[in-house]
């Protein structure tokens, strides 16, 4: 008891602004193996949804796992999920803990 169980949270970000506005660090083959949110830009869709937080680690985007994806690939997947016209939102599976679930 008392040990915090690493939990994953599904966060829906509505595309309420022309930009997503997050900065991420890390990716496969770095000491931060899954991309972590390091900055959220004021006025972007991520900021507007007010559920994404700096420090959260992104496990999946729209069901696509970022496990094993290098930094540029992970950033590209996130950017394309925001740009696609098919959906008016994006789903992030995030965790507060620096573990891969």
């Amino acid at each position: 008891p008392g040990l915090l169980e690493p939990t994953a949270t599904l966060i829906r970000v509505m595309k309420t602004a022309p930009t997503l506005g997050i900065a991420i660090e890390g990716g496969a083959k770095t000491r931060q193996p899954l991309p972590r949110i390091v900055t959220i830009q004021r006025g972007g869709s991520a900021h507007n949804c007010s559920k994404l937080k700096v420090g959260q680690v992104i496990l999946e985007v729209n069901g696509i796992s970022l496990q094993g994806k290098e930094h540029r690939e992970a950033a590209r997947i996130i950017a394309e999920a925001f740009k696609t016209k098919e959906k008016d939102h994006m789903d992030f599976l995030v965790t507060e803990f620096n573990v891969s679930l």
């Binding site: 506005g21 900065a23 660090e25 083959k29």
Partner: peptide
């Protein structure tokens, strides 16, 4: 000790 690059890449996603 696995040599992981200390420098971690950062990118903006707009």
């Amino acid at each position: 000790l696995r040599l992981e690059p200390q420098w971690v890449p950062i990118s903006w996603v707009y």
